[in-house]
Amino acid sequence: MDIAIGDLLTIEGKKYITLEKTTYENNEYLFVNEVTNDEEDVTEDFYILKVVDDKVRIIVEEELKNVLIPKFQQLLEKDIKELLEEE
C-alpha cells in the first residue's frame, strides 16, 4: 500500500496521522502520531510503523528504534524548517 505523508490511517480502531516516512534496509517505515478518536486533535503518542503490503507493525525493538528515531528526527526538523520558511 502506498502511504503518503498526511495520510490518516485507521488500524484496529485507532487512528494515526503519518508525519514522516523513510526507507531503511529496503523496508518502509512511517513515523506516526496517534490521533484522538474524534479526529480533532493529536495525542502525545508517536510510533514507528513498518509497512508490509497493507499491514503495519509497531516497532518495539529498541535497537531498530535507536536507528530510526534519529533519521525521523532529521527529516522532521527539515520538514518543519521548510514549512516555516515557506512563503
Binding site: 498526511g6 490518516l8 493529536v42
Partner: peptide
C-alpha cells in the same frame, strides 16, 4: 502486523 483498515488524507491533522 496490523491491517490498515482505512487510509485517507488529512492535512489538518498532519
Amino acid at each position: 502486523s496490523k491491517k490498515i483498515d482505512k487510509k485517507e488524507t488529512n492535512k489538518k491533522l498532519l
